[in-house]
Design a protein around this nucleic acid. Sequence first.
DNA 1: AATGAATGAGTCTTCATTCAT
DNA 2: TATGAATGAAGACTCATTCAT
Lengths: 234, 234, 234, 234
Amino acid sequence: MGVYERQIKEKEILEAAQELFSKKGFYLTKMDDVAKRANMSKGLIYFYFKNKEDLYMAITQKAFEEIISLYQKSIQKNKAKKGIDIVIDFLSVFMDFNAKNHLYRDAIFHFLGLMKAHNNPKTKEGIDPLILESPYFQKVLELQHEPTKLGISMISQGIRDGSIHKSIEPEMAYFTLWALVIGFDKLSTFGDPQNNETLYKIKIEDWKNSILSLAQAILKNEKSMQQAFQATLF
Amino acid sequence: MGVYERQIKEKEILEAAQELFSKKGFYLTKMDDVAKRANMSKGLIYFYFKNKEDLYMAITQKAFEEIISLYQKSIQKNKAKKGIDIVIDFLSVFMDFNAKNHLYRDAIFHFLGLMKAHNNPKTKEGIDPLILESPYFQKVLELQHEPTKLGISMISQGIRDGSIHKSIEPEMAYFTLWALVIGFDKLSTFGDPQNNETLYKIKIEDWKNSILSLAQAILKNEKSMQQAFQATLF
Amino acid sequence: MGVYERQIKEKEILEAAQELFSKKGFYLTKMDDVAKRANMSKGLIYFYFKNKEDLYMAITQKAFEEIISLYQKSIQKNKAKKGIDIVIDFLSVFMDFNAKNHLYRDAIFHFLGLMKAHNNPKTKEGIDPLILESPYFQKVLELQHEPTKLGISMISQGIRDGSIHKSIEPEMAYFTLWALVIGFDKLSTFGDPQNNETLYKIKIEDWKNSILSLAQAILKNEKSMQQAFQATLF
Amino acid sequence: MGVYERQIKEKEILEAAQELFSKKGFYLTKMDDVAKRANMSKGLIYFYFKNKEDLYMAITQKAFEEIISLYQKSIQKNKAKKGIDIVIDFLSVFMDFNAKNHLYRDAIFHFLGLMKAHNNPKTKEGIDPLILESPYFQKVLELQHEPTKLGISMISQGIRDGSIHKSIEPEMAYFTLWALVIGFDKLSTFGDPQNNETLYKIKIEDWKNSILSLAQAILKNEKSMQQAFQATLF
DNA sequence: AATGAATGAGTCTTCATTCAT
DNA sequence: TATGAATGAAGACTCATTCAT
């Protein structure tokens, strides 16, 4: 069995695990269920992945790779466009990414939380050693900053090409826009699928467009926005 | 033992549970630990709370009561002020609430997720019956919309008193601002406490003020913002 | 439940475990079986003992305590007698101890093997951490040298009171006699219980007495024996 | 593939298994490890050996063959010498055999224990069928008494040639001397390799020589020893 | 009310063994 | 012969919950 076949098997397992983690969460998902869903024996899961945590970290890696890949594709696709358009596309891509695969979103946030604990000597001990020992964890360590870097660099590019106002501070703007989009994702989750994906009276789709327009206004930093950002430039 | 003593005991248990759920999460917190932290026997915990889920739902209720109470205090405190000021104070209060007690924040979001599953016949079955049977769950059902209602009504009040632009759609604005603030909370969590609570180069405190300024600009709906919101008014 | 009841329970568990370990060995004994034999639930075993290794170390402690106690009783009983008589009684006691409870004998040897690995930096890593973490392990660490000390000191006493030849080197003699007795135990195990406990044509009981006579001759160090020991005095 | 190649493969497997069983014991050695150490696939191990127990019984056979071969070589080498010298050489050879390969020693004792269980209808059922089914088990059945026979016959020869005292009972003397040497082996194991292979204050090498001198005195049955053995002659 | 010993279903994980290739 | 992926029974251990006192 070559590398290719191995990757196929791993993919089958990961897909089964993703479905279940996604539906029931890490703790309520049983390795037995993963095996059943993947149509293989429990032992085989352990042949390909060291343990449940390893499996989750493998998914985390895929999550990071996916969003990075989506950003890179966006850059490719929008080569001819201005920085602001790429940033707005990033936001749109990120919204769709979140909406489409909540598990990936959760895995990314879980990892960021892990990093916080990891960087604090007091809490570092508390991290499950199985996570730290996972080879996938190591790989994610290398990937973790890539999405942020790409986002910030696209804002910088927009400033250089004039499409984003020069008074904008790239990092601050990045985090503000991503906060907006993350909050949107969090709240839109509660939209009612039985009722045309509506939250209270708001259609999620409309709301998404509104958010993107707002982001554009912020980046262009028209009068009103200057005020908002002047307070925090440093 | 009277009602008063009962409340004291329940409070002791809830405080112990909150500390532990907050630090380690629901699944990694053991009833044994809760009992130990509360300085009482495990049996007594079960005398006051039906089960672990019931305990969590009691905390969820406290979370909703707390944020509602904070909003009401804000209204009292700002009686003389304009609607926009109350809304901005709400946002600030909510940010502090999130930052101070992540467990409450998580409990509220957990409940909203529960509601979504509850409203969908396909997923309703999947909800842990222990949750549905909790008397606290019933109480939270009644409280759940209160914070949203208060937020939206304050925006409406602001529109009536002219402090918020009349073109603003209260619900849309509410969700957008709350999304912004929720995303801020989510991301600010990853700030480095070892380094003056800084995220990349941004001081969390500065960022918070920036977010509030931005919120104000949005509510005043100056030129640039109109564009953003026109697209979504309906 | 007081300390006393706790000890009763622990004793019940230890007795069940001893029976099984004794019959099937450590690896073939299942915690389920121990629970069943002790007429209690598996969980309760773990309430009293941290894990299987801990249980085994508790037995090891009892083994050391038992042989030490037997030696002490021998000393009490033979207060009026000469050193050589106590030493011979020690040997007899030790033979009976081995014969009666092979598990205790094995536990003691297992522990000595553990100590060897423990004292060698190269092999220390290889020791099961569950063993090292057992509180019983710690206690045995303190007891381990006691039987040897008692044996050697009784030989010294015999030399002082003239019942053991003054040319005898206590440590060398101790180890030689114990070797003899340990080997006897090892081989006598293979005696045929179907055939009057006979090994080939030898009755175990007779052989035991022969061994004790030999030990006496050695300690008295008559002419022939001097030769044997002169080579090794140092 | 001819018989020769087959033997080579089997030898490779046995050597790998011996190393591992020796270091970690039967239960802690995994078939995976054996395969890896032998540089072949797990499947191939099972092609040459029926199962793990079969592998162990093959080693047991080698152990018996080895000690028998050593005794035979000793006989050859000492053809011109007296019976007592051969017996002493046997003891020396056995001590070195034990010291050099603990696994072989353990395998032999394990087999003797097996025989005891095998000869007792009550315990016969308890023996792992995989052991009884091993073809190597059958072969060892035939070899098992050979070392004892050789030892006893050499003592008899010594008595006939006058080098061993005529009052000596060969079987009793054999078991007593072997007991001494087995006990020596067991205890010397605990010598400290970090400290010049010393047990308490005794150098193992010196002790070994002392043991051999003692054996000689016993076999010559000088005055003091007569007493020891008279009691048990029967 | 209060205790904490007792329960046992449930979970992760291991590993000897098999089998398709 | 040779491989190593695949199996699944088995086992150590956990922990929410109960209940006798």
